[in-house]
Write a protein that binds this DNA or RNA. Structure first.
Lengths: 196, 196
DNA sequence: GAAGATGGCGACGCAGCGTCCCTAAGTGGG
DNA sequence: CCCACTTAGGGACGCTGCGTCGCCATCTTC
């Protein structure tokens, strides 16, 4: 193992792996998943492209790992927002939506977007499903308390609002207007559901 | 111009072009946009891959054309459903959602899906934007009548429901349950909006 | 300190995209 | 009627990205 700068090979390996994941996350944040190529990630870490294969068997595993690693932060932020919000389901849904759109505004959303609609096909699906579940969990809890008989499905549909809002924001729509409207619609949908 | 079987070259050209579009639509219906490759489309029409470039300058234009061609049928079906529905905005939104999910159930949705969220990036965006607008127009009209101050934005958000429902259906969720819930949520969201 | 394990990487093969350029067959002007 | 012009078809090439094979050099372990 040439050019080892860490104390041990094991250390070196985990450092390199982390560096590769950092680079991949960076590229993903700058553009979309298609930009995450072994060549680019290797370039940013100073490795040869082929060496990346020593850490990730293929592109899919690299992307999956990025998503799996990033999801907890995302989920955590939602959970924090929910903790700060009131107890009513309406407030919790509003917090769920607002927290995500804030992250979109701050440019932290590409990973979640890749997670959420996973159009990057099979490559992402594996890790994405799991991460997506975690993302929705708080919302699912709120809906269950409301007496929803299929809270997961409802959460998925409401998440569709967030995805659409994200698309609008990316297209340059005004943040406040989009957020306000999205929260209003989501809360209204929720009320209609519970009053049935 | 070798191997011309039509009356004139002009006829032949439009026939070949149509055949290529048919093949592209076929491939798209069978899988996702990434499967639509010049090689595959050429193979299905009996042409050499390079010859496809005589009809479409690049992959993006081919896909755009497929979308542009398919969108009117989709829009027409929604319009017909709206015509058959009652006059109330609730009924119209319900019809809008139901009509689309029916088409998903019938497997006609891949093109629309490519249109709707256009994750196939720049390639699709061009034609997709236009088609997407047409898709939402009836819904936008209904919302405008309701006094919505930004009906297009609201329509886009509601369409997020449809996209999420489509994803659920593709993942194998029961059609009736998904449709019922989606319609209920959309109508509820609408009510909340208008009663504000 | 020698044998084995393993990181780094050059070379290769494959698929898809798009370009260059030749060819052969219709078309239109003289 | 024929010849110059246009143009569909397609072979060959270059580029990018993916993934594999095999060599070398260095670390580890006994």
């Amino acid at each position: 193992m040439p050019k080892i700068h860490a104390a041990s090979v094991a250390d070196h390996r985990s450092q390199q792996r982390a560096a590769l994941l950092d680079a991949a996350r960076e590229v993903l944040a700058e553009g979309d998943a298609s930009k995450v190529t072994f060549a680019e990630v290797a370039r940013r870490t100073g490795l040869a492209r082929n060496s990346v294969y020593k850490y990730f068997p293929d592109r899919g595993h690299l992307l999956t790992e990025v998503v799996r690693e990033a999801a907890p932060r995302w989920t955590e932020r939602i959970r924090a927002a929910l903790a700060a919000a009131g107890d009513s389901p309406e407030e919790r849904v509003a917090a769920h939506v607002t927290a995500q759109l804030e992250m979109v505004r701050d440019g932290e959303h590409r990973v979640a977007r890749a997670t959420a609609d996973a159009q990057d096909a099979a490559a992402l699906r594996a890790g994405a499903d799991e991460a997506h579940r975690a993302l929705l969990d708080p919302l699912v809890d709120a809906l269950r308390e409301l007496g929803d008989d299929d809270p997961l499905m409802t959460a998925r549909l409401l998440q569709g609002f967030v995805n659409a809002a994200t698309t609008a924001l990316e297209a340059g729509a005004a943040y406040d207007a989009v957020t306000d409207r999205t929260v209003r619609l989501a809360v209204a949908a929720l009320r209609g559901l519970s009053s049935r």
